[in-house]
Structure formats: structure tokens, C-alpha cells
């Protein structure tokens, strides 16, 4: 009787273990599935459009009669908005991380940190309309030549969106710097600012870099803001005042339209998706490696 009960128990345990295992496999298989689909469709695309054309052509007009398939204008748009976003998020994010980690008292940190993280909970579509309907008109008063759709305001808003990510992850990295290091610096007569900038910041640099790379890859993949506020005109320019189009915004544009399944236009989505995936994938690997190195130093 007792052994029977134990058998049932063991069997239950076995079932649960397998179930949990399957659940964890699910996400792995999804990733593999996505990569496979992207690869298949991309290969079909490159059978019709040579890869050299794809990488060197300076025009992206797959939906026009005169078709060009150069990824550069889209890459340029993504690069431009990301650059603007980073130049907003890095200074603000880092300064707030330094404040929270080195200056703020325990009580202030416990109030401010959750508040900044609320920024991360705002839906991106809200940010998008914020850029289009609030920031752009505001900036137009300062820069009259600004178009209604532009890289500048979407980049800035994207930057605001990733501030919590930069500040929170950088703060974690800075707080992981051992207290002994700070004491050593204070003991030779450093001021608080000197300790923060000359000892803690450099010591946390690989963790902070990892945070920045994650933020960059988030900016590259960001879709809603640029789809709403940056425009739909792929062009090879670094001028932040005119409408552009990012890779992600293009995917939205075509996915929403009535492009027939299986055509070349349809496949451009997958090629764009593949490009995006590769970009963020490489960045994430970098970030992961840096983070690991950081942990090795202090453990």
C-alpha cells in the first residue's frame, strides 16, 4: 500500500518535470522557428535580388514601379533615430544612475527608482503620439524647417523611453562595485564626486557598457514610435529634420498594406526582419559577454 502511494507520487513528479521541460523548450523552438522562416524567405529573396545590390543600392523602393532594393536608406534611418535616442538616454541615464547609486539616501532611492521604472511601463504607442502631436509641434517653434514627420522628435522620445533601462542597469552595475573600493578611495581623501567618477564609474564600466548595448538594441528594434512619428520615406540622409523610414517602420508599413502573399514585395519584410534580427542578436551577444566579464571580476 505504501509503495503504491510512493509510486504515484514519483510518477506525478516525473510528469511535472517533463511538463516544465516542455514549457522551457517552447521558447527555444519558437526562436528556432522564427530564424528558420526568416532564413527561408530571405534566401528566396536573394535568389531574385543579388545580395550585392541589397547591400550597396542607395534606394529602397520595392513598392514602386521602378524597384530598388538597397537596405542602406532604411539602415540609415534606424541608425539616425538610434543615435539621437542614445545621445539623449546616455547622459541622462548615467547621471541619474550615479545619483541613485552614490548620492541618494536609501529612502530617496526607494521612491525614485520605482518611479523611473514606471516610464518603462508606458505603452510605446503613447510615446509615438507624444512625439508626433506634442514634441514635433513644440520643436517646430524653435526649428521652423522641421517636417511634421522627422527623425529628431521620434529619436528624442525613444531616448526618453530607454532612460529607465540605461539608468536602472547602470545603477545595478555601479552598486555591484564592492564597498571596499569606495572606502579605499575615500581613505586617500577623495570627494564623493571623485569617488563616483574616478573609481566607481570605471570599475563598473563593463557592466555599464553592457547596459548601453542592450539599450541600443532596444532602440534599434523599437517600432511604434518611429512608425508613427518618423515618416515613411526611406532616404539616405543624416538630416534629422526630414521624414525618414526605419527598418521597423517599413515592416509595419508593408505588413499593414495589401501586399500579396509570396511576392517579392512580401519577402522584403523577411529580409528586413532578418537584418534587424542579426543587428540586435550581435549586440545582445556583445552585451552578454561584457556582463559575464564584469561578474568574473567581482565574484
Amino acid at each position: 500500500m505504501l509503495s503504491n502511494k510512493r509510486f504515484v507520487l514519483k510518477f506525478k513528479e516525473f510528469l511535472i518535470e517533463k511538463l516544465l521541460f516542455l514549457c522551457s523548450l517552447l521558447s527555444v523552438f519558437t526562436t528556432i522557428g522564427i530564424i528558420l522562416v526568416l532564413s527561408f524567405e530571405s534566401i528566396k529573396f536573394f535568389k531574385e535580388v543579388p545580395i550585392t545590390k541589397f547591400l550597396t543600392d542607395t534606394q529602397w523602393t520595392p513598392l514602386f514601379i521602378n524597384k530598388h532594393f538597397g537596405i542602406l536608406p532604411l539602415l540609415c534611418g534606424t541608425f539616425l533615430t538610434t543615435l539621437i535616442a542614445i545621445s539623449v538616454a546616455v547622459p541622462v541615464g548615467l547621471i541619474s544612475a550615479i545619483y541613485l547609486s552614490e548620492y541618494a539616501s536609501w529612502r530617496i532611492r526607494n521612491i525614485v527608482k520605482p518611479l523611473t521604472e514606471i516610464l518603462a511601463a508606458v505603452p510605446t504607442v503613447v510615446y509615438g503620439y507624444f512625439a508626433l502631436l506634442f514634441l514635433t509641434p513644440l520643436l517646430k517653434k524653435i526649428i521652423p524647417s522641421l517636417s511634421g514627420f522627422n527623425a529628431l522628435s521620434s529619436g528624442i522620445v525613444m531616448g526618453i523611453m530607454i532612460i529607465p533601462m540605461v539608468s536602472s542597469l547602470s545603477e545595478d552595475a555601479m552598486r555591484a562595485v564592492p564597498m571596499g573600493l569606495r572606502e579605499g578611495a575615500y581613505a586617500v581623501g577623495s570627494s564623493r564626486l571623485q569617488v563616483s567618477l574616478r573609481v566607481v564609474l570605471p570599475a563598473a564600466s563593463s557592466g555599464i557598457t553592457a547596459a548601453l548595448i542592450l539599450a541600443i538594441s532596444r532602440a534599434i528594434g523599437e517600432t511604434m514610435i518611429v512608425a508613427i512619428a518618423a515618416g515613411q520615406q526611406p532616404r539616405l540622409t543624416l538630416n534629422p529634420l526630414v521624414p525618414i523610414e526605419t527598418i521597423t517602420a517599413y515592416i509595419v508599413q508593408v505588413s499593414l498594406g495589401d501586399t500579396p502573399h509570396g511576392t517579392l514585395e512580401y519577402r522584403t519584410i523577411f529580409v528586413c526582419g532578418m537584418t534587424l534580427f542579426l543587428l540586435t542578436f550581435i549586440l545582445n551577444i556583445f552585451s552578454y559577454k561584457l556582463k559575464k566579464r564584469f561578474q568574473e571580476i567581482y565574484e
Binding site: 564592492p178 571596499g180 573600493l181 579605499g184 578611495a185 581613505a187 581623501g189 570627494s191
Partner: peptide
């Protein structure tokens, strides 16, 4: 005050910099 009253801690806590910079630090600041 801390510059004139030096301190060494239980656990060695050199900065993750070069030997030279570790010592130069106190003068540089």
C-alpha cells in the same frame, strides 16, 4: 583629514587600474 590619516583595510582593495595609477590616484585627485 583623510589624506593626512591614511588607512589600510582588512581586505586588500586596490583599484582596478595599473599599479602606477593606484598610487598616483591620491595625488591626481
Amino acid at each position: 583629514l583623510r589624506r593626512r590619516i591614511g588607512m589600510v583595510f582588512q581586505k586588500p582593495n586596490p583599484f582596478p587600474k595599473s599599479i602606477y595609477e593606484n598610487i598616483a590616484y591620491g595625488l591626481r585627485i
